[in-house]
């Protein structure tokens, strides 16, 4: 189809399920929306390394340590794939990091909660990654080519993340009384934040309109949230974990679980910086970014020296 420089023909391409590639015409709003969403997604992967990173040095077996390291490394890798996708839109990684540090760019709210005991590592993999995967599977069909390709790669790699988390929960629930308590405690703390990961209800979601029209977002917040609840309840019940929602029940009429009211007040408070770890997560990122500065400067200086020497060598 013709790649005309107007929004009408752009929309026709989208409606025909064509992918948009970096050099194609795109409305400014589309580009902006993508930069915001992809960089937020990338930052989430990178900031998401911290709560789990908090337990790497205390992972209780060699197997657990290797799995956790590999998983956190994947998250760094996924951040990298996503930065790479966002860069195709004309924004540099440096700018994105600056926006993260200035607070202009957000990351997923979920990582503002603390990882307090080993079962939290299970809950993060099972619930947080579980929720993320529901969203990411849907995003594989997103209209922007580089984003879609990154999501396909990420989904392929993340398939083990949820399983490893659930495996930890299973082991804990089959373990000592203390382990069971830790598992239920983690469940209690992560369930509601996991549901909030899908964002506000469709009726209150400010960005959904354009994002759906442009096929950046393929399914609504509530649809995705429902998918996640429906598949997770059975997994919890199987190992004896109680979902901390007294209103949760099977609705035979619509074939889904009904759930209780989500505390959106907490959600917005946490988004606005009042969560338990907002400050800590951002400070960590800033600190090590700053600590790495001399290393990055050195590598760049070394490159320049080498270029100079090569030129000198060529001219003499």
């Amino acid at each position: 189809m013709k790649n005309l420089h107007n929004d009408e023909s752009f929309q026709k391409r989208i409606d025909a399920n064509e992918h948009v590639e970096p050099r194609d015409y795109m409305p400014e709003g589309y580009r902006k929306h993508l930069i915001r969403q992809i960089s937020q997604h990338a930052h989430s992967e990178v900031i998401g390394m911290q709560p789990e990173g908090n337990w790497i040095t205390r992972a209780p077996s060699l197997r657990a340590k290797q799995i956790l390291l590999a998983k956190i490394q994947d998250e760094g890798g996924h951040g990298l794939y996503l930065y790479s996708a966002a860069e195709t839109l004309g924004v540099s990684r440096e700018e994105m990091i600056e926006q993260l540090h200035s607070g202009k760019a957000k990351y997923s709210n979920i990582f503002n909660y603390p990882a307090l005991n080993w079962a939290d590592i299970g809950a993060i993999g099972w619930l947080v990654d579980g929720a993320a995967i529901v969203n990411q599977v849907s995003l594989q069909r997103t209209s922007y080519g580089p984003y879609s390709r990154a999501m396909i790669r990420i989904c392929k790699e993340e398939s083990f993340h949820q399983r490893q988390g659930y495996e930890i929960m299973c082991k804990m629930m089959a373990g000592t009384l203390e382990q069971k308590q830790m598992a239920q405690d983690a469940m209690n703390r992560w369930w509601w934040p996991a549901l909030m990961m899908f964002g506000p209800h469709d009726s209150d979601s400010p960005h959904t309109g354009d994002a759906v029209k442009w096929k950046i977002k393929r399914e609504s917040n509530d649809t995705l949230r429902q998918k996640f609840i429906d598949k997770t309840v059975q997994q919890a019940e199987l190992i004896g974990l109680v979902i901390p929602d007294k209103d949760l029940k099977w609705n035979a009429q619509n074939g889904h679980y009904d759930h209780g009211t989500i505390n959106w007040e907490e959600f917005f408070e946490v988004i606005n910086g009042k969560g338990p770890c907002n400050k800590q997560r951002l400070e960590h990122h800033k600190k090590y970014h700053l600590e790495g500065e001399w290393v990055r400067e050195a590598a760049t200086a070394h490159k320049m020296k080498k270029i100079k020497r090569e030129r000198h060598h060529l001219t003499h």
């Binding site: 994947d74 990298l80 990684r93 590598a299 070394h302 490159k303």
Partner: peptide, 22 residues
């Protein structure tokens, strides 16, 4: 596969290895 950031060829190959062939 995507991109990596690096200051020289060797670093680029190593970073690509650690990022895209895990």
């Amino acid at each position: 596969a995507g991109n990596v950031h690096a200051t020289d060829k060797k670093m680029a190959v190593q970073n690509a290895r650690d990022t895209y062939t895990r």
